[in-house]
């Protein structure tokens, strides 16, 4: 396996020298994106994102809950990510890995910072609020989990229906109203290999990448950023990636909106 990795890595690097990628994509080009909402009928909202070989399902559930003591006037938002063992040979069982914690927190951060969900509208009665659970399930790891997870999470939220609530209980079989969504945040993740920046890395690229930068925007402002891996980025490169991310947002947003409507 390691020898194969080295050969693949050498191949990717030699092609990159000429500005090419093994699948003939441009450096600033996404793989094919398929986004479908409503894949899990039992969930309040759901979506499956396929970005190249990466497959992520996000399910949204809503439960009546106690308000958190420091935010009594808001609903709760809880985001979790599972890197399922069946999704990749190197994923292991056990407590959440730093990678899965990072994925969940970065997705949560962008959605929260952009105020995509109007948390203040989720108060049910005194001290009782909705808790919204965003569960990110990675079903196949093919690189770039961040962008796939943002796409699936936003489409799931946008198509979510709020259960009927009376007498302190939720009726999940009666979902009357749509969840109120204020804006759409989408991310773009760039990798850096031998000094070259490339958008939407696949599995083989991600395995040899020096560094990674995820930028989530709402089309106007940067809402969240996260650099990963031990390589460096220059300030100029960061500015370039931010510019590109704001451009990409338009297309990603329309993909999310189309998926939620269908």
């Amino acid at each position: 396996m390691e020898i194969l990795d080295t050969i693949k890595g050498t191949y990717i690097r030699s092609m990159l020298k000429e500005g090419k990628r093994q699948d003939l994509r441009a450096l600033d080009q996404f793989r094919d994106i398929k986004l479908r909402a409503g894949v899990i009928e039992h969930a309040e909202g759901s979506a499956q994102a396929d970005v190249g070989d990466t497959r992520v399902v996000v399910g949204i559930k809503m439960m009546p809950d106690e308000a958190m003591p420091d935010t009594p006037d808001q609903g709760n938002l809880i985001t979790n990510a599972e890197l399922l063992q069946l999704a990749y040979e190197d994923y292991e069982p056990g407590p959440p890995s730093p990678e899965s914690v990072e994925l969940a927190r970065v997705v949560d951060r962008g959605i929260r910072a952009a105020n995509c969900i109007d948390l203040a509208s989720l108060v049910l009665e005194d001290k009782k609020v909705w808790s919204i659970f965003i569960d990110i399930y990675v079903l196949n790891y093919g690189g770039n989990l961040f962008d796939a997870s943002y796409l699936a999470a936003m489409a799931a939220l946008l198509s979510a229906k709020v259960p009927h609530y009376s007498d302190g209980a939720a009726d999940h079989r009666r979902r009357d109203t749509s969840l109120k969504i204020n804006g759409i945040v989408a991310s773009t993740t760039f990798g850096k290999i031998d000094g070259r920046l490339l958008l939407d890395m696949d599995l083989n690229e991600e395995r040899i990448a020096d560094t990674r930068l995820t930028i989530a925007t709402d089309g106007e402002s940067i809402r969240a950023m996260q650099k990963g891996l031990s390589g460096a980025v220059t300030i100029g490169e960061a500015e370039q990636m931010i510019g590109e991310s704001l451009v990409q947002h338009k297309r990603l947003k329309s993909i999310i909106e189309r998926a939620a409507k269908e």
């Binding site: 962008g110 996260q226 460096a232 980025v233 704001l246």
Partner: peptide, 21 residues
């Protein structure tokens, strides 16, 4: 001046990012 860790949340314009750096 390599950037080795970069995290952010909230809202920043491109110009504000450059000024912050």
């Amino acid at each position: 001046n390599d950037v080795l860790l970069l995290q952010m949340d909230g809202g920043l314009s491109t110009e504000q990012f450059s000024e912050a750096m």
